[in-house]
């Protein structure tokens, strides 16, 4: 059996992981916060779209368009109402508060939607694929990858070419000095969290279209996102794509060898990277 197919599938899967990771990387970059509920918010967003699809009979992509501003508002409010209160402390409080949120979201979803696994449907596109010899490229995985590249291009543009991006980077440098420039860092943080949640909505859409999800699916999404961020190197959006791709390839190659090794192979590659280059593959010195 050739390794080419798992390799290609892995790269495409990496696009999804990069989408998981981009939002996590964004807020870590701006406010040094690791949101332990990141994965659970992805799952929450997927259920939100599912609810739109089932209750309002909308196509899934319309549900995504609705979910994006909604998730922005949710992230913004979360930051303003809860997380901004935690940031003056060391890392304990923000970590534990987001960990508590993770438990609340999982169980809230369980109450609202039961433990059954669900899926977002986009009609025939789901099964469409192009076949070249013994390699078949699914349309949805390909679109996911392209969207991941576009999201990362967009974030890079936003961060390095716009006024908002300048303010985000300056706030990451010093929350004190931006204040004497007329900027309230709490507001900047809220916008950053809102942006992260928009990326979460996009990630959730492709997660839900590509595979089943259930209320307990969040923590493993967090771990994939985190691994992609660390493998790629902190503070770099392109790093999340590289990290995501490496993670995806590790998983599909592992699964090709033994189906039970999929997750294990990803984790092992992650541990190998921290052993060899704890600051990630792309880290600036």
């Amino acid at each position: 059996m050739s390794l080419l197919n798992p390799l290609i599938q892995g790269v495409l899967l990496g696009g999804l992981y990069a989408l998981y990771a981009a939002g996590l990387s964004l807020i870590f970059g701006v406010m040094r916060l690791v949101n332990l509920a990141h994965g659970d918010f992805i799952v929450l967003a997927a259920y939100l779209m599912l609810a739109c699809v089932t209750a309002l009979a909308l196509p899934a992509w319309v549900a995504l368009l609705i979910a994006m501003p909604f998730m922005f508002a949710l992230g913004w409010a979360l930051q303003r109402l809860i997380l901004n209160r935690t940031l003056k402390n060391d890392l304990l409080v923000p970590l534990l508060v987001t960990f508590g949120l993770s438990i609340i979201i999982q169980n809230g979803l369980l109450l609202a939607f039961s433990a059954d696994s669900r899926r977002l449907t986009v009609g025939e596109l789901e099964i469409a694929s192009w076949t070249f010899g013994d390699i078949s490229i699914g349309v949805v995985p390909l679109i996911t990858f392209i969207v991941a590249v576009l999201v990362i291009l967009g974030l890079t543009f936003l961060f390095y070419r716009t006024r908002l991006g300048r303010i985000l980077r300056a706030t990451a440098d010093s929350t004190e000095i931006v204040q004497i420039m007329g900027i309230d860092p709490r507001h900047v943080f809220a916008i950053a969290m809102g942006l992260s949640f928009v990326v979460i909505a996009v990630a959730a859409f492709f997660m839900g279209v590509r595979a089943n999800f259930d209320p307990a699916a969040g923590p493993s999404r967090l771990l994939y996102a985190f691994e992609a961020v660390v493998i790629g190197g902190l503070g770099s959006f392109w790093g999340t794509l590289i990290g995501g791709t490496i993670l995806g390839v590790a998983q599909t190659v592992g699964a090709a060898i033994n189906p039970e090794w999929q997750q294990l192979a990803g984790h092992v590659v992650f541990l190998a990277v921290i052993l060899a280059r704890p600051r990630g593959l792309l880290a600036r010195a």
Binding site: D173, M181, G182
Partner: peptide, 17 residues
């Protein structure tokens, strides 16, 4: 701001106006 260029630092000064 160490991760900003000279011009970006200057522009930060006008953020509030």
């Amino acid at each position: 701001f160490p991760s900003l260029t000279v011009e970006e630092n200057l522009l930060m000064g006008s953020s509030g106006r």
